[in-house]
Every structure is written in C-alpha cells, then in structure tokens.
C-alpha cells in the first residue's frame, strides 16, 4: 500500500537555508546541500525547497541550489517560490526539480496552473496554498488565501480556491496554515479536514508541527504527506526517529 510521506522543507534565501516565524524574522540555518543530504540519509521521503528570496539575484541562486541539491539526493524534489511563468518552472525542472509549486502567481492568474499541467503534466504541478483563519465570530471556522509570504490577505475562500486549483490542473496541494507556521502549536487540523473534504488530489500538511504526535494528527486528518522545517533543522528530531514513531502509531511508513 501507498506509504505516508515525511517531507523536510528547506526555506532558502539567496542560497542559504533560513528560518523564521510566520515567514518573518528570518535567520540563517545552514547550507541547503548539506542539509538535503542529511535528510536523505535519515530516510526523508521527498524534499521541498521554498525559495523566499525577494530579488532576481536571489532567484538566480535558487537554480544553482537546485542543481547542487539534485546531485546529492536520490528522492523527489519539489521547488517553489517566485514561480510566475511557465519559463520559471521550466528552469527549475531543468535544474533538477521533479515538481514545481506555485502560490501567489496562481492566485493572481489561475490559468497558470492549466498551462503548467498541459506542458509538464499534473504530477509536476503543485499548488502551494497558504491559508489564514478568517476573523469572523461564527461557529464554523473559515479560511482565506494569503499571498506574498502572508503580507496580503486576499479575502478568497481557501476551500473554494483549492477546488478551483484542482479543476485547473493542480496534481497536489501543499497546504500551509499561516496562523500556525513556525509556532510549534501543531497543524490546523480543521483546515486540513476542510480541504480534504473538498479535493481528491494528494494533500501535504504544513505549518506548526513540533513533534511526531502533530505529524500523526496531520495524517489522521487526511493528509497524504506531512511537511516540517523547524523540527528537523534544529536537530532535536531526526526524520528517521519521527518515521519510526509514526509507524508505531500504526501509520504506513517507509522505514
């Protein structure tokens, strides 16, 4: 049977791994090639690189980083951040990405998803969806799409956007809770459940995990894969240890 995936994420800026809370206050967290190789040794099922560079020069580093990482890993690599056009995706795929994640540009122009899926296939086309809880005093929670690293709240409903993105060609959804990202409070389980109920493509849970129990909650809420950055960077948890713990909880893991 298909295994649940544990996916370490490297947030990369100007060729270096960085870490912050809610996408702000970034600090240096190491060399991406070194970290990617370590995660593969520990049994990572896939890797994600999110380029958070703000400048064209920084973006140039991203292609070099992907090339260098590709040479040291023998597992799938998803790259996102700053993908605006089919040509951007093509450059990353040619450098060694297997899938490309699009976020703000797809919100601005949903047809980009269709163009990417037509050219590279749905299995290459990942929607990165950052969602924040709406401020509304109702019983049922609702989420809106946020873009530009959380700086802009679009007002667009996250569940409706996930469905539209699937229909337009997204082969997978990387779902990040903006409220939980970097906090260590655990995934927004209600958000995962809401998106799971709305789409049939695979879903990667992201934002807020601090330990294996959080990852288990994400998988039990319907995620096919769990993504985490902070918990693996600081070295207090290994991918291998986390996967063993998830297996003990009865989740299907590749050990």
């Amino acid at each position: 049977m298909l295994k649940a995936r544990v996916i370490p994420c490297l947030d990369v800026k100007d060729g270096r791994v960085v870490k912050g809370i809610r996408f702000q206050g970034l600090r240096d967290a190491g060399d991406p090639v070194e970290q990617a190789a370590r995660y593969v040794d520990e049994g990572a099922d896939e890797l994600v690189i999110l380029d958070v560079s703000a400048t064209p020069e920084g973006r140039g580093h991203a292609v070099t980083t992907v090339e260098a990482v590709r040479e040291v890993i023998d597992i799938p690599l998803t790259v996102g951040g700053g993908v605006r056009r089919v040509e951007d995706a093509e450059a990353l795929l040619s450098a060694g990405a297997d899938k490309v994640a699009v976020n703000s540009a797809a919100v601005a122009e949903p047809a980009l998803l269709t163009r990417l899926a037509d050219k590279f296939g749905k299995q290459c086309t990942i929607l990165a969806l950052d969602a924040a809880r709406k401020d509304q005093p109702t019983a049922d929670p609702a989420w809106e799409v946020v873009v530009r690293s959380g700086k802009v709240r679009t007002g667009r409903d996250a569940v409706i956007w996930a469905k539209e993105a699937e229909a337009r060609g997204a082969g997978e959804i990387l779902l990040t809770s903006w409220d939980r990202d970097g906090t260590g409070e655990g995934y927004d389980v209600a958000l995962l459940q809401a998106i799971r109920a709305a789409v049939s493509v695979p879903m990667i849970a992201s934002g807020g995990a601090a330990h294996a129990e959080h990852l288990a909650e994400g998988l039990q809420a319907g995620a096919d894969a769990v993504l985490a950055a902070t918990i693996f960077h600081d070295g207090h948890l290994s991918v291998k240890g986390v996967k063993a713990e998830l297996a003990q909880r009865g989740l299907p893991m590749r050990l």
Partner: peptide
C-alpha cells in the same frame, strides 16, 4: 476509490 495521482512510495 484510491488517491489519484498515486504520489509516493509503494511496496
């Protein structure tokens, strides 16, 4: 009834 695409590691 199964997840499509099949993304991930399988036996």
């Amino acid at each position: 009834e199964v997840r499509v695409p099949q993304f991930g590691w399988n036996r």
